[in-house]
Structures are given as C-alpha cells and as structure tokens.
Simulated assay, not measured.
Amino acid sequence: MSGRAESWLHRWPDYSHMLDHLDEPMARLRWIIGDISEVAFYKHELPALGLLSGAALAHWANRNGKPWQGFAISYGTGLWPWLVISSLLGLLLSHVLWGWVLSSGTWQPTFVAFVSLPAAMVLLCGAGWRVAFNGALFGALLVTPASLLLVNYLCYPLQLPVVAGNVGGMAIASVLAFILCRRYPRLVRSTPAADLPQAVPVLSTKPEHGVLWTLRRVLADFSEAPFFGNEWASLGLLSGVLLAYAISPGGPAYGSQLVIEIIAGQSLASFIGVLVWRHKWRSLGWYPTYIPIVSVVPAAVLALGGSWQVIVLSAILGALMAPPLAHAISQRLPSHMHGYIGNVSSMAVCTVLIIPFIRLVTGATS
C-alpha cells in the first residue's frame, strides 16, 4: 500500500467523530448505513455494505441454483428482495420520523426497524408492495418509538443493558402490529390465511449434520438476525467489520476496540449452541442458535470487558439458555404472529439475567 493511501485510510473517521458530527450530512449518512450492521454490535458502514453485498450474491446464487449458494437465503422463500426493500424502507422512515433523537448526543436505537417487524411481516404475509410498505410503516411508527421509550426511560435510568430495550420494543410493537393485521387483513394481504407461509423457517432439504455443516451453520448464524441466514451474507458482514477494524480500530463496535473479542465470543456461542442443539436442528429444520450472537455475548463484552472469563461465560450461558427459551415462547404464539417475537423476547430476558451473573462471578466492572 502506498504511503498516501495508508495515510488516507488512517484518517477514516472513528465512531466518536461520527457521534460528535451527526449534524453533518456525511456523518449522518454513515450512521444510517451503520444501522444495517448494528444488530451484530458492529455499527459501521463497511460491515453493513458487506452484509448487503454478500446477501445479494447469495440471492443470485439461490435464484440460479448454484451449488455453492450455502444455506438458502431467507430460508429458501425467495422473498429476500421484498424483505430487504421493506427493511430498508422501514429504516429510512424511522430516521425521517425519529432522527431528531440523535441530537441528544447519546446512542439511540434507530436501527431496530431494519431487523424486526418489516422483514418478519414479509416472511409471514408474502411478497408485494402492500406488505413491504405497510411493514416498513409499522416498523417506523411502532417498533422504533417503542425501543426509544424503553431505552431512554427504562434502560438508561436503571442502567440495564440497552439491548433489552431494543429487543423489548421489537417484541411489544410486533405483537401490536400483528394484532392490527389480523383485525384489518387488507393491510398486508388479500389471500386466505391458510395460504400464508409458515412463521417458523424450514430448510428445504435435510442435510447431513456433520463437521462441515456445523461450521457452515456457525458462520450463517452471523447473518440470521436480519433474516438472511446465509454464509455469504455473514462473510460479507465479517469481512467488512475486520476491514473497518484494520483501518481504524476506533471505528466499529462503538469505538470500543473490542471487535476481535466480540467476534470470538459470538463464534464460540454459536458453535456451542449448534453442537448442543444439533438434535433440534435435525428434527425441526431450524433452531435459534444465533440469539447470543446479537444479544448476550456482545452486550457482556462491551459492558464488562473482553477478558476470557467474560467471553467464555457469556458464550456458554447464552448458548444454553437463549435458544430453548426462544423456542418455548415462539411455540406458544398464535399463528398470525411471526416466531421471531419469541427470539427477541429471549434476547431481552437472557441479557438482563446473564450479564449481572457474569459480573458477580468475575468481579468485572468495566
């Protein structure tokens, strides 16, 4: 790399610079794009763009029947384009309506519409502009303000992990939205309820659950939260965050410089979860082993530091507790609600319970 290029890369603005200059168009644009990778706690434009690029490649490979496509993106529904349209539109509408909250100078959960109700509504109700637009609208009108209220009036005052407010808002708002959709079905569909796809994703084939499948599943878990669940999407996400970290360690993951520790804990959590719950993958076709990747582990590392004790404990406890709790809740939801509500509910409960326990056991204070 030439000296000029290296010097330019090292001037890439870090997270604190972005947060301090959100009144400037470029910093605000970086924040909005970074929201796409926020669910993995990376918060940077490079992993966000990598995630979307990898997912687009996976969708193309799926549409063309390529053998290297990996796990069929968005569970083989073929709805990935509509899912992304609705999620991105929900994100943009959220910033139009609620972007002013960033003037407070503190972190705010503006990302939540991208990884919640809009995508779930597309998966549950099917393709079409009516579903995509109304899902995005519900995301901006219900999910984002619900998470903002919980984060600012519950998590911050009580010093709870903000992830509990993020996902708690997703769960509460999604329940309300699906009740409205059941009451007014023309909001999202014009087909009989019996013709709707199942809420729980099912793989189209029954693979051998050996070593290679396990490694692929761990990788795919990194892109499960935005409803992609594909290795190429995950590779794009991880490549982007590692590149961002190499360019400016203070850029991704809120400038914590804990990117490596977070990824290590996330990988360990998914690996343990996939191994322990492999029989569930085999019998059900899908199981929420991704949950600690986007909740317990990164929240613990950011709150308590990147020691090996924090990494290992958060990975083990998250992998053992979160997936079965999520599955138990999802199984008890009515058929007109997407099962992801159980997943985000589990994220909230497990994060609130596990992080104080780790703090007690390890004595971590940072």
Rank of each mutant, 00 (worst) to 15 (best):
Y75S: 15
G54F: 01
Y287F: 15
Y184A: 04
S147N: 08
G236L: 05
L57D: 03
I358A: 04
G54A: 05
K66E: 11
Y245R: 00
P13H: 03
P249S: 06
V202E: 07
F133R: 10
V115M: 03
S267G: 15
H17G: 01
F71M: 03
A72P: 09
G251Q: 11
H327Y: 14
A193R: 03
T144S: 04
Y254N: 05
V274M: 01
V115G: 00
R182D: 10
V361K: 12
D35A: 13
G339D: 04
A246P: 05
W129S: 11
L9G: 03
A319R: 05
L304D: 06
V84N: 05
L88Y: 02
A264S: 12
W68H: 11
Q198S: 11
A319N: 07
E38F: 10
K43L: 13
E224F: 00
A171G: 03
L83V: 13
L235S: 12
S37T: 09
G70V: 07
S248Q: 15
N166T: 10
H327S: 12
L275R: 06
L196G: 01
A146H: 10
P109I: 08
L333N: 00
A164Q: 08
H279M: 09
G70D: 07
L93M: 14
A177G: 04
L89M: 13
P157H: 13
D195I: 00
P197M: 13
S330I: 07
R189T: 15
R359F: 01
L89K: 04
G126W: 05
L258E: 00
V131D: 04
N64H: 15
A299D: 06
P118G: 10
E208Q: 10
D23R: 13
A299S: 15
R30V: 09
R186H: 14
T205A: 14
S346M: 10
P288E: 01
L203W: 06
W107G: 01
R186M: 12
W98G: 07
V294S: 02
G339F: 06
L154V: 15
L268R: 05
T351H: 02
W60E: 09
R186I: 10
P161S: 12
G168A: 01
I36E: 04
Y153V: 03
W281G: 00
I329W: 02
G128Q: 08
P145W: 12
W277K: 02
I291E: 04
Y287L: 09
S2N: 14
S103T: 13
L92C: 13
I73T: 07
L353R: 12
R332N: 14
W213D: 06
G236W: 05
V162F: 08
G165W: 05
H44C: 07
I85V: 15
V297R: 05
L235F: 14
W8K: 13
A319M: 06
W100N: 08
E6Y: 04
Y254W: 13
N343L: 10
G210D: 15
H21L: 09
A328G: 09
S267R: 01
A348G: 06
Q331F: 01
V167G: 01
Y75I: 00
